[in-house]
């Protein structure tokens, strides 16, 4: 059990920043409900994955240094993405062991957590249970396990355990919930046809689950799957899991009709 009020730096992630600020606001809300003090470091941009996965190690290291500096001094770093937080965990590999940034990268990796695993594994369900029990979500959801969160960070049961606290919500697991949706960062534009095949398999499994809402923990995958569901004309809504957990489902789902965030603030 951590401090009663740990100081948490929010890693916003570039997709939440640009496409869906609601996800970042929901993350802040959950962290605060769990008793954390949340700050948003100004000097963060992206985790560096586009460079890392394109083989540009030097740029990746530059961005890693910037991120390490930006999150200096926080007790924890938490973000709404297994993929981006997984990238933070890779930072130590970018530096030789005598580089001062190696030790700092190791420190950052150790204190960085994906939001649902942070809430469940680090803060503990009890810090949030009362708030979650007050929520109501009438619907059947299915959960896509995003690859990096699942296989790099071990995120699997945490989001489901948290969701089970929400009244009215039931989970219908889809077939192949752990199979990649075909997003893969730049993969989806480098190999669009293969990516399309993968996301088509995914949307088939989503519809066959009978759920009316798709949830996940990574916006990259969610934008991909929501975009495909939309193109196929399917009426299944897609949301980041934190939106449900923070009770922010009055906001239109991903890719749903026009919505101006400013008016809701």
């Amino acid at each position: 059990m951590p401090n009663t009020s740990p100081r948490v730096g929010l890693f916003v992630t570039c997709l939440a920043d640009m496409f869906r600020p609601t996800v970042a606001f929901a993350t802040v809300k959950l962290l605060e409900q769990a008793g954390c003090t949340v700050e948003v470091p100004e000097r963060q941009t992206c985790c560096g994955q586009p460079a890392f996965n394109s083989g540009d190690r030097k740029t990746t290291a530059d961005i890693a240094r910037q991120t390490i500096d930006a999150f200096d001094g926080y007790e924890y770093v938490v973000g709404p993405s297994g993929s981006c937080i997984g990238m933070l965990h890779q930072y130590p590999d970018l530096f030789i062991s005598t580089d001062p940034y190696f030790a700092r990268a190791t420190e950052l990796a150790a204190k960085s957590h994906e939001i649902t695993s942070f809430l469940f594994d680090v803060m503990g369900l009890e810090t949030l249970q009362e708030k979650l029990n007050q929520l109501r979500f009438d619907g059947t959801v299915t959960y896509h396990d995003s690859c990096a969160g699942l296989r790099e960070l071990g995120v699997k049961d945490q989001p489901r355990k948290l969701l089970q606290q929400v009244e009215g919500l039931s989970i219908n697991e889809m077939e192949e919930a752990e199979t990649c949706c075909g997003f893969g960062g730049t993969f989806c534009v480098k190999y669009p046809e293969i990516s399309n095949r993968m996301v088509s398999n995914k949307t088939d499994n989503i519809s066959n689950s009978g759920a009316n809402t798709l949830l996940g923990g990574d916006l990259g995958c969610l934008l991909n799957m929501a975009g495909k569901l939309k193109r196929e004309g399917k009426s299944i809504e897609a949301r980041h899991v934190v939106e449900v957990l923070a009770g922010m489902t009055d906001i239109p789902a991903i890719g749903e009709a026009d919505y101006d965030l400013a008016s809701q603030l």
């Binding site: 640009m18 609601t22 669009p192 929501a226 975009g227 939309k230």
Partner: peptide, 10 residues
């Protein structure tokens, strides 16, 4: 191949 969900705004 798929739609691009629009950003929310700011």
């Amino acid at each position: 191949w798929r739609d691009m969900p629009a950003p929310q705004g700011k």
